[in-house]
């Protein structure tokens, strides 16, 4: 079976950010360790990944109105913001779902196949 490529979009919620902020250093370190472990467990399937800086660092450019319009913030104002990406190479959607069900951090993950 030929492998398929998907991008996992990790999505943070306000509640998750608050929970993380409320942790003490040791707890937070354990949370990060679980994430590192997940990446290590799935190293053979992950082709690249990136963690994003918080949403307040985002800048959006709109090109659909003649002159480009540059605004502060993410393209859609939402309580849920994309906080990272991972590109994976797996057999099918079930394999991607299996990986994502074991994801130990932010509470929402979108799975999207890539073209080609």
């Amino acid at each position: 079976m030929s492998a398929l490529k998907y991008v996992l979009m990790f999505v943070d919620t306000e509640q998750y950010a608050a929970d993380l902020a409320a942790m003490d250093d040791a707890e937070r370190e354990r949370a990060y360790a679980r994430v590192r472990q997940w990446f290590a467990d799935n190293a053979d399937k992950i082709t690249s990944h990136a963690h994003l800086m918080p949403a307040h660092t985002a800048t959006t450019v709109r090109l659909d109105g003649g002159e480009p319009v540059i605004t502060d913030g993410p393209f859609v104002e939402s309580k849920e913001v994309v906080s990272g990406f991972a590109e994976i190479d797996v057999a099918d959607l079930d394999a991607a779902l299996r990986m994502v069900k074991a994801w130990p951090a932010c509470p929402v993950v979108e799975i999207r196949p890539t073209t080609g």
Partner: peptide, 10 residues
Amino acid sequence: ADAGIPYRIP
């Protein structure tokens, strides 16, 4: 087809 939903028993 596009999302790679497999054809098999889980």
